[in-house]
Design a binder for these strands. Structure first.
Lengths: 208, 208
DNA sequence: GGGTCTCTCAGCCATTTGGCTGATTCCAGG
DNA sequence: CCTGGAATCAGCCAAATGGCTGAGAGACCC
């Protein structure tokens, strides 16, 4: 059997080297390349033909990980992609899985977990860290809390500290509409003030 | 000349391996050990006698990096410590430097920067990533923004999303007093709504 | 003793926010 | 074609918030 070809995508050199050091020692796994950004990953994949792409979600400037996943899958729907990131925010997990990630590992995962995830990914298996799985489960169990795209957009701006008037101008809608969206958001988040909504959003979603 | 003995402290195995891979190739630098927590670092230092401790600030459960730095310095005031972390929040930087860190690097630092920082640390030089230095400079340049203890306490609770009434009850003061404190906080933060204050606080201070 | 800082509280008033009800348009799914 | 979700807007009213001025008590420094 030929080795599993892996492409590493992370904006931190240190992390790439660490993964290379860990995965490189494993028989049957070969790191064929590294990319420091989503753009770079998209450029390298056609050339390197990796079986698995291991990538971080947060990648400094430029394209974020979610978008990179989406585009990789658009290019090749069978491309196996493993998310390897630091935080386990609800929104990120759902979006990554939605975009087509096969697995979701946290950076404090044990080496064995990482090897298993890489091997599993090529077979189409879905591997995720226990804390991630539990969060994803909660999300599925509680679909009522999912915000609509417009609501999410508004919530994101809300965490910048804007007033209703400013939100309206920014989104080209009336203040009345802003209030309606906010009321829906409060309901879904289980809060009743904008301050609590901001606090919840930043803590739950890693919005910063 | 003998090699510079380095101890790596980070809760992520991947990061430790990456640092080891990077530093290990450098002549004159020797990685003598790794620790996954502040407690572990404190236990290893007396035994390994590293010239430089390279450590992350955020370390999952248990002792945080700041506290680890403080205790290492208490044990040996001449211990050189380099902070190597992901985020550059104002408060973290100030607290780390205050606790006795010699340098402050971000995880996207270039290899050369890291080598230079390790070498500089043993000579007592202070090395920090440019974005970090600029933030630190701003802090020093603008001491007028320092909150009083009570104000800081209030701001911290504010980021939990409490109302004025709740803040008053929690701090055993009247709502009027809460409003006075808030007005002062807004002035110092340069904002004029509680939403903006929360956003600023969480983003500037890493309050989560 | 006088000045300064911090923390405490009060009252007044304009603005903002939140809760409610109801309505229209558009679009996707059955 | 009907239903339902999503997004848009309106009006009303109570509550919360923010800006202002003023003020007393205690601590600390010179």
């Amino acid at each position: 059997m030929t080795a599993i070809r892996v492409l590493l995508v992370d904006d931190h050199l240190v992390v790439r080297r660490g993964l290379r050091a860990l995965l490189g020692t494993q028989p049957g796994i070969e790191v064929v390349g590294e990319a420091a950004s989503g753009e770079e990953a998209l450029a390298l994949v056609p050339e390197l033909q990796p079986a698995v792409v291991v990538m971080d979600l947060a990648m400094g400037a430029g394209m974020d990980g979610i978008e990179a996943i989406r585009q990789l899958r658009a290019f090749n729907p069978r491309q196996a992609i493993l998310v390897f990131t630091t935080y386990d925010s609800d929104a990120d997990i759902v979006r990554a899985v939605d975009a087509g990630a096969m697995g979701y590992l946290l950076k404090d995962a044990a080496p064995g977990e990482i090897f298993a995830a890489v091997r599993g990914a090529v077979e189409g298996k879905s591997v995720m860290s226990p804390p991630v799985a539990s969060r994803l489960f909660q999300q599925l169990r509680n679909p009522g809390e999912i915000l609509t795209p417009r609501e999410a957009e508004l919530l994101s701006l809300l965490t910048e500290g804007l007033s209703n008037r400013e939100l309206g101008k920014r989104l080209f809608i009336s203040e009345a509409t802003v209030k309606t969206h906010l009321a829906h958001i409060y309901g879904k988040l289980g809060v009743d003030t904008r301050a609590a909504a901001i606090a919840t959003a930043i803590r739950r979603e890693g919005m910063r």
